[in-house]
Design a protein around this nucleic acid. Structure first.
Lengths: 159, 159
DNA sequence: CTTTTGTACGACTGAATTGATCGGAGATCA
DNA sequence: TGATCTCCGATCAATTCAGTCGTACAAAAG
């Protein structure tokens, strides 16, 4: 329950990877393409492509066509929040169906609905939570910086 | 996204209704049955029945058979948390697949997974949130106490 | 004590969401 | 100009979920 979809999973992984390659070492900033990410994390290429396209359409990442093309972050990692990513990939996030419903097509239970108010509070809290954590924060605790610099950075992470 | 299922919706509504009838007025505490709740909130009876059975099996409510039978809360409303209800109806709640996975059958991405740690933190926060809000809290802000005792209890709640 | 009513309970079926796939068009670099 | 790579649409399969049906059981009525 409350499990987020594969799209979201893949999207977050990809973003972390892109960010790492772009910001970890300024001198070695490079563009990563779909195939590379897919192979690295064992994700079906076509599905990942679709995810990245969606993210690009939202402006979270920028796409570069042609050979040597790929993706780059659209803005600073600390200005990309989890909430933005999830909303881009799965639409507006709401605990219940009647989260943002106009009058009229409301659910049948609406008039007698006794749980709407408290659930809205919970939803608001969750949104704040997701909107406070940025891509920058996600990179902090990660042992793996980039594929090739693994050998150099060899600290013993969690075990 | 993150939307909770109909089961959860119905379950929470029903619990609120049961609690209201049981605790609002000690003198008029009464047992409510499936049919009554279903008609009141326009929920398919059989589905609601299934939900209530699940909750009963978890000990959240007690079932009473035969005519004049129905359901009562298994324990005090302030000892029933949203998290307990959701887990009863939809299994353990986890943001991701690998939330509580043993070593071995882990996902393919596990070794390279760069988002596990931060997501676990978010998940933990959400769980705390859901586990801190009780059925008692949900009853506070509700205008409708019970169907028949509306006339007696006429305090102006939030408006 | 038997019958009747109304309830809980479990298995089953259909529908919808989601994960995954395929094929083609356009753009960029060598 | 040719080859590589991304973008974009439509399509298919699988899992999950909402909803339904039939049975067994317990309590009240006769």
């Amino acid at each position: 329950m409350l499990k987020l979809s594969k799209k979201a999973d893949y999207g977050l992984m990809a973003l972390q990877h892109i960010a790492a390659n772009q910001y970890a070492d300024v001198a070695r900033a490079r563009v990563v393409n779909t195939k590379e990410i897919a192979e690295e994390y064992h994700i079906p290429v076509e599905l990942l492509a679709k995810v990245l396209q969606t993210l690009a359409k939202s402006g979270i990442i920028d796409s570069h066509n042609g050979p040597k093309g790929g993706y780059l972050l659209g803005r600073n990692p600390r200005e990309i929040t989890i909430a933005q990513v999830l909303e881009s990939l799965e639409g507006p996030l709401g605990i219940m169906d009647c989260s943002h419903e106009k009058e009229g097509d409301a659910c049948m239970q609406r008039e007698h609905c006794n749980i709407r108010t408290p659930l809205l509070k919970i939803q608001s809290s969750i949104y704040q939570l997701l909107n406070n954590m940025t891509l920058q924060d996600m990179m902090g605790g990660t042992p793996l910086i980039t594929i090739q610099s693994v050998a150099t950075e060899q600290q013993g992470v969690e075990r």
